[in-house]
């Protein structure tokens, strides 16, 4: 992974500086200071619903990938979509976007405007040629008007909006860089700005932490938390590890075997709930402020490369387990 071309300011997500002992919420607050006015107190029950998923079922290639998934998301909430590889996270996000057809149940997104207007999306992998003659600001601009016909007319208002969006994700200094030459963390910020450019009420992110080091992952989580709280946007992000989201999640959607357990972290990430979801005994351990989900039967297999030394705070389960419903 290439180093970022420009030296990054304090809010950067570029490298894992080992000296950082802070809680991790400090600097990203600064990074997002341009986002909007003050935070609102958390009152989950009274906020309007942005996303409702009711008994969702998705069949792909003759296989039931998701069945009976139900949850909802309110304005300003952050939800984690947790599940191991192949659990159906991407499928669920694409179904919410309307890109994958739903075979049963319902997905409704608030707002009379079209689905693609109300929902912003940051896909997991965006592979870009380093030569692509598109700057970060062009990509964010395309988030505003990329679906429109005709040639773009230069507009001071659009330019200002673009710069505000980039500033909001702490990426204004990258505005004129070619998108193909950004580092993983930088590109992700620009993609978040792109997704926010359509003024969505719901922001979906597919494995936004997958290719980031710990420090950048923490910055990203804090940034998304800020966006949710300050702009009232509902954020749904998938991850195979629940730990980075523990402090910010209002809601967990835990996928296994094509089904989902949903609710608050404490209600879902529990031995009894996950055991019934997986269909066999699952241990949920708490250690050093982290959660260890031990799925058991698969975790002793030869996936040694996924294991982390216990002292570092281990996640067994997510990355190790291979969805009970798979083959």
């Amino acid at each position: 992974m290439p180093k970022p071309p420009t030296p990054l300011p304090a809010t950067s997500s570029g490298t894992a500086s080992s000296g950082t002992a802070s809680s991790g919420t400090g600097s990203p607050e600064d990074a997002s200071s341009g986002v909007g006015a003050g935070t609102r107190p958390t009152q989950p029950a009274q906020r309007p619903r942005v996303l409702s998923v009711e008994d969702l079922g998705v069949r792909l290639g003759g296989r039931q990938v998701l069945s009976d998934v139900s949850f909802h998301l309110c304005e300003g909430e952050v939800a984690g979509l947790i599940g191991s590889n192949g659990a159906g996270k991407t499928t669920l996000l694409r179904a919410v976007l309307g890109l994958t057809p739903v075979s049963s149940g319902r997905v409704s997104v608030a707002g009379g405007r079209g689905r693609h207007q109300a929902v912003g999306y940051v896909p997991q992998k965006v592979v870009l040629d380093a030569d692509l003659p598109v700057r970060a600001r062009d990509l964010v601009q395309l988030g505003q008007d990329g679906h429109r016909w005709g040639l773009p007319l230069p507009s001071a208002a659009k330019r200002a909006a673009t710069e505000e969006l980039l500033a909001g994700v702490g990426a204004l200094h990258l505005a004129d860089a070619r998108v193909g030459q950004l580092s993983g963390g930088e590109l992700q910020r620009v993609l978040v700005a792109h997704a926010l450019a359509g003024r969505p009420r719901l922001l979906l992110l597919d494995e936004p932490l997958a290719n980031l080091d710990l420090h950048s992952a923490r910055d990203t989580v804090a940034l998304l938390d800020c966006i949710a709280r300050q702009q009232g946007i509902a954020v749904l992000m998938s991850t195979h590890d629940v730990n980075p989201l523990l402090g910010v999640m209002d809601r967990v959607v835990y996928l296994a075997g094509g089904r989902a357990a949903t609710g608050s972290t404490d209600d879902v990430v529990r031995s009894d709930v996950l055991s019934s979801l997986y269909g066999h005994h699952v241990d949920v351990l708490h250690a050093h402020g982290r959660v260890i989900v031990s799925v058991g039967d698969d975790s002793h297999s030869d996936d040694g490369c996924d294991a982390v030394p216990a002292s570092a705070g281990v996640l067994v389960g997510g990355p190790v387990h291979r969805g009970a419903g798979a083959r």
């Binding site: 976007l97 693609h116 965006v126 395309l142 990329g146 679906h147 997704a195």
Partner: peptide
């Protein structure tokens, strides 16, 4: 604009 966006990423274009 749609052509440009879909050459950057077909998935981003579809989402828009």
């Amino acid at each position: 604009r749609p052509l440009l966006l879909s050459s950057v990423s077909p998935e981003l274009a579809a989402a828009r």
